[in-house]
Write a protein that binds this DNA or RNA. Sequence first.
DNA 1: GAGATATGGTACAAGTGCGTTCCGTATTTT
DNA 2: AAAATACGGAACGCACTTGTACCATATCTC
Lengths: 189, 189
Amino acid sequence: MTPQLDARARRSQRALLKAGLELLNTNPEATLSDIAIHAGVGRTTLYRQYETREKLITAIAIDCLETIDEVTAPIEKQAKSALDAIRLLFELAMPLTQEFQFLMNLDQLVEDNPEIIEINEKQKKEMIEVIEYGKKKGEINKSLPTTWVINLIEGLFYIGWLQQKQENFSPQEVAKLAFTSFSKGVSTH
Amino acid sequence: MTPQLDARARRSQRALLKAGLELLNTNPEATLSDIAIHAGVGRTTLYRQYETREKLITAIAIDCLETIDEVTAPIEKQAKSALDAIRLLFELAMPLTQEFQFLMNLDQLVEDNPEIIEINEKQKKEMIEVIEYGKKKGEINKSLPTTWVINLIEGLFYIGWLQQKQENFSPQEVAKLAFTSFSKGVSTH
DNA sequence: GAGATATGGTACAAGTGCGTTCCGTATTTT
DNA sequence: AAAATACGGAACGCACTTGTACCATATCTC
């Protein structure tokens, strides 16, 4: 598929994707120069690998989506129910706060990109299936719109990121809290 | 207190604050020129009212905080319990999605500002009191960290904004969903 | 209505980021 | 070891944004 890349070029790409993810998350106006320095490569090398700022950002976004895909792949086989799948999702993907944050702010960094939209919608469809399966099985409240439940899940990753950043909670602790809040809310029962 | 402002200057300021809120939300890199045009005033007028980009952004943030304060003021008197206060908070403040979004992304627009931090912490302290009162009264699950509950509330405003934007839900519908999810979660009970 | 003041427009200076080109050097590939 | 290729660095042109200065005009205050 992808024509074998020179080892140096591969290293540069990895370093640039990582540096871009980190820097653009903390400062969306980070310069390509900043990113190159942070990646430990020359500015011209950045331009050789990614022709424009936009292409770099798109590449980072796609890399994030792939990472999330890889990490969540085992869910399908392991999950014993719809709720269990969501519990596993929180548990496995909560460490990927950087990736979620980047995707969350993506529309402020670059115009919509068809490739990214496609991958996003594929992931969303999988979520819809899980939620509606859960509704059918009586696990999830049918009076809640499926779109709301999906946004709730996405939002709980944002909340989890806040909690990790502000209070130094571990991804595991946060995943537990997120699943509790998701399934049972905060009331005493 | 504030020395009476010329009627024209007042109009300009209002228009600039509103335009800045709208534009910077959709594009954090919006130009001062863009904002002036969108506000229907000259660029020089913007600079007369707000010396620098940073001061404009700070002024917008403070205006947002004041708006939220005004809208949520009645809660203290009306609320019959801690959970009821949070229900009212969602109901009254959910229409203020623009203001919340702006404050959420504020740290990406400008360095931390002492005045804003002060107001923010005051509002947070009030929230903490409500949550801990709710815990004491047995309304809220004591095993959940108060910081988590507060982040959950903030996050539900973000989720509510997503739902309004993506699915054209009304603030009222969203407020109901947010409170249900907050208090009871999504499980069938 | 007269004076004060805010406004819009233009022009200007300084700074910054983007993207390109060129060249000598270092590292892979074969 | 030789050929291929990716690298870093420096320099350049370009476009754009910020912030300032000036001036004639419109609007407000009293």
